[in-house]
């Protein structure tokens, strides 16, 4: 009788232990499996960013895009040439924009002006904009840091 009782108690403990152990391992393995799941973006890569298609931009138009943690500005000049810059004004950190009426890159905050090579030509900006490299593959536009 005694032995039976201890036996069943032991069996219960084993089951409980096994169950808890399994739960524990489940909780350890879960993040591991989730980690191996392919993330939405396949890789961390700002070595080049796809900005869109050539057809998205007519000459004399521009577009803002995300370049790493910073905004980027892609401009198609009236001659059809593509230019890209980090769109953060070198004065304070406002985002610059392309003004097709003046053919300049313009910062609305304090009227800072840059030419289409990113050179600061008027207003408070102390330095030129950081230029980016534009690559065109088929009809897709890629932007990467200047080497």
């Amino acid at each position: 009788m005694e032995g039976n009782k201890t036996n069943s108690r032991r069996g219960f403990l084993n089951v409980l232990l096994g169950g808890t152990l399994a739960t524990f391992f489940g909780m350890v393995i879960y993040p591991v499996i989730r980690l191996m799941e392919p993330p939405k973006l396949p890789e961390a890569d700002i070595s080049s960013v796809a900005v869109g298609k050539i057809t998205d931009l007519k000459p004399d138009q521009s577009k803002l895009f995300k370049f790493g943690r910073q905004p980027g500005l892609l401009i198609r000049t009236s001659e059809g040439e593509f230019k890209a810059f980090i769109a953060t004004c070198t004065h304070l950190d406002c985002t610059v924009q392309y003004r097709s009426d003046m053919k300049i890159i313009w910062c609305a905050c304090h009227n800072g002006q840059y030419d289409l090579n990113g050179l600061n030509v008027a207003g408070p900006p102390p330095r030129p904009l950081t230029p980016l490299e534009v690559h065109i593959k088929d009809d897709a536009i890629f932007v990467s840091p200047k080497a």
């Binding site: 609305a108 905050c109 304090h110 009227n111 207003g123 408070p124």
Partner: peptide, 8 residues
């Protein structure tokens, strides 16, 4: 004078 910088 102000519009030199505060153009907008």
């Amino acid at each position: 004078v102000c519009y030199q910088c505060h153009l907008a």
